[in-house]
Design a protein around this nucleic acid. Sequence first.
RNA 1: GCGCCUGUAGCUCAGUUGGAUAGAGCAGCGGAUUUCUAAUCCGCCGGUCGCAGGUUCGAGUCCUGCCAGGCGCGCCA
Length: 695
Amino acid sequence: MRPRPKRCRRRRSWVDCADRTLASPRRGPTAQGGIVLGIREARARLLTACLELAPRPEGVTEVPTDGIAITRPPKPEMGDWAVPAFPLAKAWRRNPAEVAKQWAESMRADLARPDGVLGALCAGVRDAQAAGPYVNLTIDPATTAGSVLGQVTRRGDRFGWATVPTGETVMVEYSGPNTNKPLHLGHLRNNVLGMSLSNLLEAAGHRVIRVNLVNDRGIHICKSMLAYQRWGEGTTPASSGEKGDHFVGRMYVLFDQKLKEEMAAFAAARDVDPSTWSRAALKELTDKDELKRREAAAEAFEREFLAASPLMAEARALLRLWEADDPETRALWSTMNGWVYEGFRATYARLGCRFDKWYYESEVWQLGKSEVERGLETGAFYRNPDGSVWARLESLGMQDRCVLRADGTTVYLTQDIGVAMQKFRDYGMDRSIYVVGSEQDAHFKNLFGVLKLLGHTFADRCHHASYGLITLPAGMGKLKSREGTKVDSDDLLELIKGDARQKIEEGGYCEDPAAIDGIAEMIGQGALKLFLLQVSAEKSIQWNPLETIAFNGDTGPAVQYSHARICGILRKGLAAGLITEDDLERSATRGFGPFLKSERVDPGLLVEPLERDLLRALADTEDVVQTAAERYSPAPLAAHLLELTKAFARMYHEHEVLRAASPELARARLQLSLAVAQALRNGLALLTIEAPDRM
RNA sequence: GCGCCUGUAGCUCAGUUGGAUAGAGCAGCGGAUUUCUAAUCCGCCGGUCGCAGGUUCGAGUCCUGCCAGGCGCGCCA
């Protein structure tokens, strides 16, 4: 009855050689040997140097490295990097502050030596000061600026990405639509999470395979088919001018309406009042026994009705015909699914959603069956007297689950066992991620448990990337396609786009009317997608369809706006002749730049606190991407982009870029701004959001 | 009844393997613009981190119990 809810290859082999190129000999982040390191690598060397200088107690040579990681001090003026003394203090049973003090002294002594360790391993370390249990390190601003700008300009649209491929292949399954209805807001969250997660894993250096598993069979499709046969009057999406998925979705709603009418008549005939167990009526009840009684009554009535309903009987008959390969039924099924796919393709294309592989439940639904036999042989499963087969999940601290019905047909869990095996057979990936709503948490626990029982070693490499539901405010019910309280994806995208278009026209910064449509689309999606991705996945999101989505504050458009303004600054600079095309380098093929040619920029001029804040935020980007990928969560990246955006807004509000005190400073600031634009564009892309040049 | 998730400012949310003084946005109030785009910036206001214990040098973060909300507990998918 309830369809699989909201389940919601490409090869990219790249070795980025940019970081191995020789840096300008004049300045920049050159460590000895002239090799420019990635920011993460440089920091790793800094940590190595620091550990070497740790103040060991008498007779100790080993330094514990566990748990020591370089972090940022809470305030910029305290320094650029912070090394905690806790782990050392703990290992040596000493006071952390005391260790930090000695450690800082040892570092300062090292810095004073011409052949010091710090100087050899990392350029630009200026000072080390103990502050409580931490040692705060100060880096020469020019070195930092040169290093960061060098990174961004060299890596272009790969800035923020891992510099070396991991060689690991990760599969991400997401979207998982049902072919009986269009995509709604719940699917949007799934799709955006799935797309973004895939991008992040790619950026972390993995090869990613994007997979869709379509629920294209089952009783729910038969309902749409039946409604179409009965009341469709031979119309088609083409003849009614309707998007295919909406057309079929309408049939599904139609079936539900007719079924409700049937139910009302059924209830009237038996003299029962279904409103006594409506959601509202149950909410008001305080008597728990009464509540239970009502719920039981509701369930009993529904069961009775569904068993007696002629419409349901017909739908079930249609399902049997489908399973028996009845040509006429299969033909109608193909036709209607075809309509739906046409609609899906349009929505997916609009969202920028793509897949390397499509699995269809109609093709894989019986795959797990052979595993049942094997499970019985190995003792992972057992057979009940009635013939049904069960998995011994109790041995893993769970409840045993049915994997084969008494009548010999498979269940959802069995199907997923088969699909999981098929996936690993097809791609041999190292990890398999399922982006599916939290209402299926238990299902995936069971699935992975059963895979383990069956001895599949890949069970440990499967992960359910769970996310919370999208709920409507109290009193507005639930998102349900059947009852029309869904928030349709297409409608929603159109609505937000309209708001965006209005703002663009008010702003008047887009002279070309033909371009407005595309920009409105980018901004509308930016608002929606960042709204969805900002929140940690496991949390549910309350959505009020009556409130328009915000464009101000911590929003996608705010990030896009900063990007657009930077593009605007560059345009102004070129138009005013303050810089020329000859000053620039850009590569259209890699979404690279534009940047000023690095030999025409002196990063050492970027000494203002607001500029340094910005450089620091830029430098954190690679770490954030890595963390986001590790945690299967785009939210940290969303937060980071907003941070970067605000840091930029503060900087350019306070300091003029093009009209800076000197042409040299203007160029340095412009380069900084262009680097920010690149970082924002890259980050947004990982969140599946595009960045317009003007808005 | 059992299991999982959530609970942080009036609202919506961040808060890395436990670590420096718990941060943003919105709303409210007060300021900033003959603009390199005000989809902006600055300031103010706002907190017993659901409650109570515990672990330790240190807890929003870990453990136990309780309270509140959500989801799940089918031979449905």
